[in-house]
Design a binder for these strands. Sequence first.
DNA 1: GCCGCTCTGTACGGTGTCGTACATACACCC
DNA 2: GGGTGTATGTACGACACCGTACAGAGCGGC
Lengths: 234, 234
Amino acid sequence: MLLSQTVIANALLSSMPRSDYVNSMVHLELVNLEFGDILYEVGDTIKYVYFPNDSLVSLLTLVDSHHALEVGMVGSEGLVGVAIALGVKQSTVRAMVQGAGSAMRMKTAHFRAQLKQSASLQKSVNLYTHVLMAQIAQTAACNRFHQVESRLARWLLMTRDRVGMNQFHLTQDFLSDMLGVRRVGVTKAARALKDRNLIDYSRGNIDILDGKGLEAAACSCYKLSNHTLPTRRS
Amino acid sequence: MLLSQTVIANALLSSMPRSDYVNSMVHLELVNLEFGDILYEVGDTIKYVYFPNDSLVSLLTLVDSHHALEVGMVGSEGLVGVAIALGVKQSTVRAMVQGAGSAMRMKTAHFRAQLKQSASLQKSVNLYTHVLMAQIAQTAACNRFHQVESRLARWLLMTRDRVGMNQFHLTQDFLSDMLGVRRVGVTKAARALKDRNLIDYSRGNIDILDGKGLEAAACSCYKLSNHTLPTRRS
DNA sequence: GCCGCTCTGTACGGTGTCGTACATACACCC
DNA sequence: GGGTGTATGTACGACACCGTACAGAGCGGC
């Protein structure tokens, strides 16, 4: 079977005891997520839950149909579709692929069944739900009090921590929807960070040059919302 | 037993089947919550979960130790301490009594036990956790995009819906911490609503004069974050 | 090599909120 | 009924971000 040869980098899956995992495995399907893919739109029925390996998914809240704002970021430490574990079938957020890569997915019905069978999975999914909730709450406050430059720095660091690399591809236009500001606002903030040699970028290719420096430029929310991240970088 | 004579107005408790409820009842304790009481501080170990009857509790995120922002509001439709149901012992938010009244509380350990025994309780708590999560996400976006006056209107309506009355007592100073703005900012916004005869107030006594008008003044988030509220007012 | 497209940079006036300071108004108490 | 404390109102300059418009810069395709 192909799956057994695949690297399961997702923390929730790989933390399962072997016996439970074997049961789940047959329902897991390896998929490639492309940048910009919409896994769910607001109000959509959730057909699959996704366990990112090296992909990265953004959870967005939409307001007045033209403003977007990221409230959560899901990488290999979590899963997309926690609502299912809470007994809710529809998504209240847009789930969009922010970093291309692979993920394991499972049909909603199978996921529910596995949750009942595996106390271990149940536990880790619950824990992750809490982490996500805390992240959303922290982001809410961050968006209210901190300015764009700090939030951009925080966002870049969070992305780095999840993709595990100092380079990734994201345009300023995309970032403006994540941070909920104008594209021009991102340009100014990014420019300021670039001028301080903390990052470099060109046409969407972002490179973090000075991680420590960027952490200093980021707001305190970075440390707070990441202390629960299992795959923490040094 | 005193409890049997008490009106259990909490939706999560009153939705339980009688057999489950009888089991839980012995672990429930009626308490009066006073305005300003702190049920948990950030980082506190959660000793009790609270099921508000006619009281109202705010969940606050703190930033940089001097800014506060409300991310969630819990009335009789929910419970305070959802983290416990997710297997987490510490609170990541401050839970503060915003509206005095009664609540039922249960020790953490008992609550965990009841969750295991009652599938019904488990289900409704899960559902509420999701509702709260959606509310937090919506609030995050609202705080980012909408201005103080609309947010104040929304906040007053949400409070009204939970306390079930058009009058309640809250100072502008208190409101400034809820909305995450200066006290002066609240004054200006409140004044604008008062001038339009939507509300009246004096020294903390707030009176909603024109509910419909206030809804019109509120941002779209009001309808969105309330469509899941069981005890919806007409 | 030129065109066209996307991405990034700059400019401009407007405005919502900030931080701070001080003035007024109401309620309660001796 | 005058004093005290809390609640509310007003003022003012500063500034972060807004909406919009347009100019340059990098990259791919023909």
